[in-house]
Amino acid sequence: SHFSDLLLSKEGADITFEVGSKKLAAHRCVLAARSTVFKKQLFGSMDKGAAAPSVVKIDGIEASVFEALLTFIYTDGLPDLDRMHVWLLYSEGGEKDATWLLQLLEAAERYDLQKLKFICEEKFANLICENRM
């Protein structure tokens, strides 16, 4: 819960991600500790004396998906999907929910977050099974 509080408070954040029109603050050390891709992106190409960028633009990922990715990185869990997305399962046949989960799965692959990939695959399989019944 302490890392979740850190993400929510933005205290000590040293990087900002621009995802669409949304700006999301984060902490380089937390991202690098959880993702080898973030580690390479944020620390790998730094020359001695070179300043690391403080703003990184993210393309190809919706803001809500990137927020969920950050939540996973900080908490090792997903945001409350019951509140955020599963209601779409009943209101629109699950298509938007499945699309969102697929995008999160793609983001997990992009940032090499194996546990998040597994969680998304499991939830996606459950959606498929529920829609078949």
Rank of each mutant, 00 (worst) to 15 (best):
E121C: 12
S4Y: 14
S91C: 10
R34W: 06
D5A: 15
D82P: 05
L8E: 15
C29T: 15
L116C: 04
A63E: 13
I58P: 04
R28M: 06
D5Y: 15
T99R: 05
L42H: 07
K40P: 07
D80V: 10
F72E: 07
L78G: 06
L127P: 02
S91I: 08
K10M: 13
K22R: 14
F3T: 09
E11F: 13
M84R: 10
R132W: 07
H2S: 15
D82N: 09
K39G: 00
E92N: 12
A125K: 09
L116W: 04
E122K: 10
S54L: 12
T36Y: 08
L31Q: 12
A50C: 11
D97F: 13
F124V: 11
A98L: 09
K40E: 12
S4H: 15
S91M: 05
L24T: 14
E92K: 04
A125L: 09
G93E: 02
L127M: 15
R34K: 15
T71P: 01
I15Y: 14
H85Q: 06
V37Q: 09
A68R: 00
L89P: 01
M84C: 10
D80F: 03
A107Y: 06
G49E: 09
A107V: 00
T71D: 03
H85K: 04
L7G: 01
S91G: 01
K117I: 11
C129E: 14
V56W: 03
Y111H: 07
A33S: 15
V37I: 13
E106L: 07
D80S: 03
E109M: 05
A50W: 09
L42V: 07
A51N: 10
S9L: 08
E92T: 03
M84W: 08
A107S: 10
F3P: 01
F72V: 04
L81S: 01
L116D: 05
D97C: 14
A32W: 12
F43N: 08
T75P: 00
Y90A: 02
F66C: 02
I119W: 04
A108R: 00
P53V: 11
N126H: 08
F124Y: 08
I58T: 13
E121D: 10
L89T: 08
I58C: 06
L8G: 12
K117S: 06
K48C: 11
A125V: 07
M84N: 08
S54F: 14
